[in-house]
Nucleic acid binder design. Sequence first.
DNA 1: TTGTGTGCCGACATTAGTTA
DNA 2: TAACTAATGTCGGCACACAA
Length: 210
Amino acid sequence: MYLISETAKLVGVESHVLRYWEEELKLPIRRNELGHRYYTREDVEQFREIKKLKQQGLQLKAIRTVLTDSTLQVMVPIREHIQPVRSTQAGLNERDDRQLQDKSARLQLLLHNLVAQAVRENNQDLTREIKETIMKEMDYQFRIQEEENEKRDRQRTEREEEHYKKLDELIKQYSGRGLTGKERRERKRQAVKERKAQKSEEKRKKHSLF
DNA sequence: TTGTGTGCCGACATTAGTTA
DNA sequence: TAACTAATGTCGGCACACAA
């Protein structure tokens, strides 16, 4: 694809001449997202052809007619082939029938070529549209993936914090387990002593009430 | 007078370079 | 790094020149 300045250089005219020809000849020049013209190789060839016709002395009006006719000429052979197909039903001899089959085959080939040409022309536009759609979809999927990854990271961090918190509490809870047997026995004696003292105190309080 | 081409204008977008 | 500026390219439109 070429911009107007590049195309002008390739054709050998000024940019405004291309704009003028486009307007006068009603050429379907495509635009990009900025509204700027962009030209294909076919467009460049067409402009070269126009220039050649200009040099031969044709006016733009005449060139427009030539361009229109050249498009219509493609359809002329089809009309030639359609007529014999209709006459088949009237009943023909074998030679005519062979000729008819031959013409029918040529018609099929011609139609095939026409369809292929149309498909090729459409393919360029279609490819561009598909490319843009895919890029947008990929961008969207990447964003979604990114958000999911961030969410997972947050959840993992929270779980880890929770785990370490519990671990910390367990360590505090079992901190007495590091004592020696002598120390554990001493703690037990102390606990029993405190329990006895507590019971006798409760008994004393009971008696004082009566 | 008509057809064709040219020059210029203002507006807008993009890009590259500069400056705070 | 952001903001600003200049250069560049493109647009549509209009007026004008020039040859037939």
